[in-house]
Design a protein around this nucleic acid. Sequence first.
DNA 1: TGTTTAGTTGCTTAATTAATCAAATAAAAA
DNA 2: TTTTTATTTGATTAATTAAGCAACTAAACA
Lengths: 119, 119
Amino acid sequence: MDIAGKIKKIREAKGMTAKQVISTVDMGAAMYSRIENGKTEPSLSTLEKIAKALGVSLAEFFNDDNKLDDINSFDASLMEKVKTIDALNDEEKKTVFSIVDAFAGKQKMKDALVSLAAQ
Amino acid sequence: MDIAGKIKKIREAKGMTAKQVISTVDMGAAMYSRIENGKTEPSLSTLEKIAKALGVSLAEFFNDDNKLDDINSFDASLMEKVKTIDALNDEEKKTVFSIVDAFAGKQKMKDALVSLAAQ
DNA sequence: TGTTTAGTTGCTTAATTAATCAAATAAAAA
DNA sequence: TTTTTATTTGATTAATTAAGCAACTAAACA
């Protein structure tokens, strides 16, 4: 989604009117309207003002909704494990993934264990 | 960290020179230098060009390094693995996680293999 | 319906980035 | 060190956003 729609979506999710947003920051209604409708490309400074008024971080405007949906479909404990995996070094990751692939049926489990034992 | 330093950090992490970055996008060296040194505030269009050249999403420039729970910090290949793990049965998941914990806890890999072999 | 509030659009001026070239500096290599 | 390459800085012009005001439209409501 484009950033314009993202801002509007977040604002409406928070139950705020455009007027409420601009009242908390130094910004004219005309400009805000143009931004939310994609009529202009806002500068980072302007986006920061809006983010502050909406009470979100600037990053909120850029993250991928599809990826967010994916993440939310997994339970919390799995995501904790993912963070742990992500923190492993490359060699360790590789090993973990070879085991996962083996279980998933892409390889023989024995092959994975053999290469693992050889380390 | 400001966006300028973030871009430079990502570029260097990828082992690229500024020249390599600008050679893949329509951008002058002077401008790129000013952006990476925070001498100007780049527009979103310009940031998109740079992100593309660096092979990262625009979100990378905005997420907080301290927040590991930022979804954008996980790359696509890792997400594919997560899906695969999620599809495993409970017993298999348990085994995979024991390996992960073994690595993360700096335990001896052998311990994990022993319990695995015992199944 | 008429009224009020919210939101959009047009217009002009000011401020800032983008593009470009040239020159200076820094870094790397021979 | 000398040479080459990479990066930074200055200066000018073009393009675009920002600010501000006014007018118009849409929506909500008494």
